[in-house]
């Protein structure tokens, strides 16, 4: 098991170096830079060169990457040339908003999606069709649009939930939960549909296996067959899908945090993009990449936990 996880980790750790490098290359290839952004329309060449030097933009690409990497490894992701704030602090102050959103969404999508998938695998016909419809609709509706519709319905028309904002958990758990309801609903729609469909397919596959017939022949109850044996076996492919969807949710937060004006990393990315604030973008990319590696690790551990063949290799 340990070897299995370590091997997977060895494959994904290079991402932490490759992804920021790719962004460095892209920024270098592209026309324009942060100095020009800061100076605006009118500037003298001398002032431009001076600012470039000050920001370190005149050094070769590999040198810049090397010095960024050396700092990053010590937890220093640099400083925003736009706001002057430290990127690490900025990210640290916003990361919990995004974590709340993504974790809550994953839990909601996994619980409802797996429940719906299991139900539709044992009661076929109508419910199975419902899962098909839900997954198609979930696939087609953009999360940001669903979010806006939810705002129109539940905030503007009915006034049940706040339309925007975020309240930290330690300030008021109640308001924290209330503020999360609509964003989580908007974001979980797609993931929920995908998980329901995947669970249904995996359950149907498992339920047609020989060992399920054998268990029935031993007189084991349907309850144990479905909830213990079939679900545990179906969990192997489903856990992989949940992991992939979690990675997709990181992208989703960029849009949904914008809709609900939440002060998370997604909102930070949008602001930084408008401001051409590369250090901040770079920092968020690293944070997200780190999150992806952690998720993959958790998925691998879950995979090994569910699947003795992988664990005991």
């Amino acid at each position: 098991m340990a070897r299995f996880v370590l091997r997977r980790l060895a494959l994904s750790l290079p991402l932490l170096f490759i992804v920021p490098f790719l962004t460095f290359v892209m920024v270098a290839l592209a026309p324009g830079d942060a100095a020009r952004t800061i100076l605006g329309e009118d500037f003298t060449p001398a002032a431009y060169e001076a600012l470039r030097h000050e920001l370190g933009l005149d050094r070769p690409l590999l040198v810049r990457y090397g010095s960024w990497l050396a700092d990053a490894l010590q937890g220093d992701l640099g400083k925003s040339p736009i706001t002057g704030l430290g990127v690490t602090d900025e990210i640290a102050s916003r990361v919990w908003v995004t974590v709340s959103l993504v974790v809550a969404t994953t839990l909601v999508a996994a619980l409802i999606g797996i429940g719906l998938g299991v139900l539709s695998s044992i009661r076929q016909n109508r419910l199975a069709r419902l899962v098909d419809v839900v997954s198609l609709v979930g696939f087609s509706l953009p999360s940001f649009w669903v979010g806006l519709v939810l705002v129109a319905l539940f905030s503007v028309a009915l006034g049940i939930f706040p339309a925007t904002g975020y309240v930290p958990l330690d300030v008021s758990p109640n308001q924290w939960a209330l503020a999360l309801v609509l964003p989580v609903a908007a974001l979980s729609f797609h993931a929920l549909a995908a998980i329901a469909k995947q669970t249904r397919d995996a359950m149907l596959d498992v339920l047609s296996r020989d060992y399920i017939t054998s268990l029935r022949a031993h007189g084991i109850s349907e309850r144990s067959i479905v909830l213990k044996h079939a679900l545990r076996n179906a969990a192997i492919p489903v856990s992989t899908v949940v992991g992939l969807l979690f990675i997709g949710l990181l992208d989703g937060t960029v849009l949904v945090e914008s809709v609900f004006a939440m002060p998370g990393l997604g909102g930070l990315v949008v602001d930084a993009t408008f401001a051409h604030d590369m250090p901040v973008l770079q920092g968020v990319v690293v944070t997200f990449t780190l999150a992806v590696i952690v998720i993959n690790l958790i998925v691998d551990i879950a995979y090994g936990w569910f699947n003795p063949k992988a664990r005991l290799q």
Partner: peptide, 13 residues
């Protein structure tokens, strides 16, 4: 494993 949308925004910038 690359967070796609953020990467796109970087390219966009």
């Amino acid at each position: 494993a690359i967070p796609g949308l953020v990467m796109l925004l970087i390219v966009h910038t």
